[in-house]
Amino acid sequence: MILPNKYKAIISMAIRQQLVQWSQLVGRIILYGVIVYLFYQVFQSVKAEPNRVWYLAITEWVILSTSSVAFQISRDIQSGQIVYFMLRPMHYLVFRFCECMGTSLVRFILLGFCCFLLGFFLIGAMPEKTYLWTWITGILFSILGVLLYSLILVLIGLLSFWIKEIQVLVYLNLTATFCFGGLIVPLDFYSDFLKKISFCTPYPWILWWPAQWLTDTVNLSHAFLGWSFWMFFLVICIGILYEKCLKFFVVEGG
């Protein structure tokens, strides 16, 4: 699929806007460093294997890279700014998604450097799987994780048409990511029942899959199929919901 030039231009603008807001980037890097360091200390005290720190560094990398597109969409809907965007020859949601991708890309690259520097500095060694292609595919999978997570946030943002305050939903989503995605502890540590529940949600394909691929083993075809299913499912849901939102917008004003 070829992305039209207008959407490429939006991604490029978002990248520049994110680079200009360097203080926000520094804050995010500090937050990332503190989280990884704290858990490194915790894992050391329980004598966990070094790969656990790498696992956490990778999952946090994915989560902190993703732009808060849900709040952006919510603000547009609540303030009526969405009307301004709908008067342009572009798809509003694709515009916001591209903007989110641009912002996330800058964060992903910077936090990626931090992830490997910090991981190497704290552990003193790379994860066990150090083949170059493993790393390249691992990074690609992490990008896919960011994509999937962004789609969930777009879906939550759209719910602003009905729910005035989406903050609760965003926090619930974060909690679900924490629990079902294996943000801190890999899903292999879960009981069978909890693991089954987790795999019924999209969250393992956001965090567990890329982190597990880089630090342990994972069935690549299963993982990719699961990711594709959730991407397809979410795109369909967002499409239907957006159409409903437009109808609602037409009815209620805005």
Partner: peptide
């Protein structure tokens, strides 16, 4: 207009959006 960026960049973006 994009708040943190120079005006020129938003105008260029609009040029792309309107083909």
């Amino acid at each position: 207009l994009w708040y943190h960026l120079p005006v020129q960049e938003t105008l260029a973006l609009l040029g792309a959006i309107y083909d």
